[in-house]
């Protein structure tokens, strides 16, 4: 464990907590894409298959449980909670996220480090996570006034993977034979998808104006 990865995990945790805070306290999911949340639930479900078979550390197991629990409960809240679901804008959240799942699965079957079920599922989760934010970014462009919590959520979600990139660079230079091209390229693509969001988020913070993405 290095400071970059720990900071990344904490940033990821913070993004989840911000979202749970928003949904649980003000009982609203305005501006939040259910599709991105469903994709993330699938990402964690396919990435943490070794949750019960391999024990790495208490930290590792705890964080996996938090990410799995939070992502599935957020999907439940938006789909079934009688108050929260009313604020879900299904007419705007129209990204065909199923069109993301299949290509990622096919790609994972073609390009992976080892052709085993667990390895292919793990690779699938990496590819899917790289594109999981797309429905949310599309929804943000359609949502005129983005509330602070939603903006913070997306920012933290993007920042965590950027910190992971620093972690991979650090591990590459400090650990012999630490080479994971699939992880690195997926993480880089994922972070680059946030590039324009980061730009507008920074501009709104610098000029102290409401965050708005150009249509």
């Amino acid at each position: 464990m290095n400071i970059f990865r720990f900071a990344g995990d904490m940033t990821h945790l913070a993004s989840v907590l911000v979202l749970l805070l928003k949904i649980h306290t003000i009982k609203s999911c305005a501006g939040i894409s259910l599709k991105t949340q469903e994709l993330y639930a699938l990402v964690f479900a396919t990435r943490y298959l070794d949750l019960f078979t391999d024990y790495i550390s208490l930290y590792n197991t705890l964080m996996k449980l938090i990410f799995l629990g939070s992502s599935f409960s957020i999907v439940w809240y938006i789909r079934y909670h009688k108050i929260v679901r009313r604020s879900y804008d299904k007419d705007q959240d129209t990204f065909r996220h199923y069109f993301l799942v299949l290509p990622c699965l096919l790609l994972a079957l073609l390009i992976n480090e080892k052709f085993t079920f667990r390895e292919v599922m793990w690779t699938f989760s990496l590819y899917l996570e790289a594109v999981a934010i797309l429905p949310q970014l599309v929804l943000l462009q359609r949502t005129r006034n983005i509330d602070n919590l939603t903006g913070q959520y997306v920012f933290l979600l993007g920042a965590y993977r950027a910190l992971y990139i620093l972690n991979w660079i650090y591990r590459y230079f400090t650990e012999p034979h630490y080479v994971h091209w699939i992880t690195w390229i997926s993480g880089l693509v994922q972070t680059l998808l946030y590039a324009d969001f980061f730009y507008y988020y920074f501009q709104s913070w610098k000029n102290n104006v409401k965050l708005e993405l150009p249509a």
């Binding site: 990865r5 995990d9 990821h12 070794d50 078979t53 391999d54 790495i56 590792n60 964080m63 996996k64 990410f67 992976n112 480090e113 080892k114 667990r118 390895e119 793990w122 992971y164 972690n167 080479v179 994971h180 992880t183």
Partner: peptide, 10 residues
């Protein structure tokens, strides 16, 4: 070898 389980990163 490159790929190994369990993966130590989240």
């Amino acid at each position: 070898s490159q790929s190994k389980f369990p993966k130590d990163e989240l």
